Simulated assay, not measured.
Amino acid sequence: LEAPHAPPGEAVLYFRPHDVDLLDGCSGCIAGTVAASRRVAGTRRVELEIGGERQRVEIELPVDHPAA
């Protein structure tokens, strides 16, 4: 990810769920692999492994989302 106005070094990325799209394959995206998925009430929580160190992030999706 490019961040031309940020100082060099490590950073933390924050974003609002409505500001991102989940895609199947793309260039320049944050790529992840689904490691776990569970249903919670009317949503589904999906754990993604991202990066070379396979760090886990959790996202919340609608129950009918095709993430697998």
Score class of each variant (00 low, 15 high):
His18Cys: 11
Ala6Val: 06
Gly9Val: 03
Asp19Trp: 01
Pro66Lys: 03
Gly42Phe: 01
Arg38Trp: 12
Ile50Gln: 11
Glu10Thr: 02
Tyr14Pro: 00
Val40Ala: 04
Leu23Pro: 03
Pro66Ile: 11
Ile30Tyr: 02
Gly28Asp: 08
Arg56Gly: 02
Asp19Lys: 14
Val20Lys: 04
Arg39Ala: 09
Gly9His: 04
Val40Pro: 00
Gly9Ser: 10
Val34Asn: 04
Arg56Val: 06
Ala35Glu: 13
Gly51Lys: 10
Val20Trp: 02
Asp24Ala: 13
Arg44Gly: 03
Glu10Arg: 03
Asp24Ile: 09
Ile50Met: 01
Glu47Asn: 09
Glu2Ile: 06
Leu22Lys: 07
Arg38Ala: 12
His5Asp: 12
Pro62Trp: 05
Leu22Asp: 00
Ser37Val: 07
Asp24Thr: 11
Val12Ile: 09
Cys26Lys: 01
Val63Glu: 15
Glu49Ala: 09
Pro4Met: 13
Thr33His: 07
Gly32Arg: 02
Ala41Gln: 08
Thr33Trp: 02
Arg45Cys: 08
Asp19His: 11
Pro62Thr: 06
Gly32Asp: 08
Val57Gly: 02
Ile50Cys: 09
Gly25Glu: 13
Arg54Ala: 12
Gln55Phe: 05
Ala31Asn: 14
Arg38Gln: 15
Ser37Phe: 04
Arg45Trp: 11
Leu23His: 02
Ile50Leu: 12
Arg39Thr: 08
Ala67Gly: 00
Thr43Asp: 10
Leu13Ser: 07
Thr33Ser: 12
Glu58Arg: 07
Gly25Ala: 14
Pro17Val: 15
His5Pro: 00
Gly9Lys: 02
Asp24Phe: 12
Thr33Gly: 08
Glu58Ile: 01
Arg44Lys: 12
Thr33Phe: 00
Tyr14Cys: 15
Cys26Asn: 12
Val40Gly: 01
Ser27Thr: 13
Pro66Ala: 14
Pro8Phe: 14
Arg44Glu: 11
Glu49Val: 05
Arg39Phe: 15
His65Met: 10
Leu22Asn: 07
Ala11Ile: 08
Arg39Asn: 07
Pro17Lys: 11
Glu47Phe: 01
Val40Phe: 07
Arg45Pro: 02
Glu53Tyr: 06
Ala11Val: 10
Arg45Leu: 13
Leu23Asn: 05
Val34Lys: 04
Asp19Glu: 14
Arg54Met: 10
Ala6Thr: 04
Cys26Trp: 03
Gln55Asp: 15
Val34Leu: 04
Tyr14Leu: 15
Asp64Tyr: 07
Val20Pro: 05
His18Tyr: 14
Pro7Met: 15
Arg54Gly: 00
Pro66Cys: 13
Pro8Lys: 05
Ala3Gly: 03
Glu2Gln: 10
Leu13Met: 12
Pro4Ser: 14
Glu49Asn: 01
Val20Glu: 01
Asp21Gln: 14
Leu1Val: 07
Cys29Val: 08
Gly9Thr: 05
Asp24Glu: 15
Ala3Pro: 00
Asp64Phe: 10
Ser37Lys: 05
Gly42Asn: 06
Arg56Asp: 07
Cys26Leu: 06
Asp64Ala: 15
Gly52Glu: 15
Val40Asp: 01
Gly28Ile: 08
Gly25Tyr: 00
Glu49Ile: 01
Ala67Phe: 04
Arg44His: 06
Ala67Arg: 02
Ala6Met: 08
Val63Leu: 12
Gln55Thr: 11
Val46Tyr: 02
Ser27Phe: 11
Phe15Cys: 15
Leu13Lys: 06
Leu1Ile: 07
Asp24Trp: 13
Arg39Trp: 04
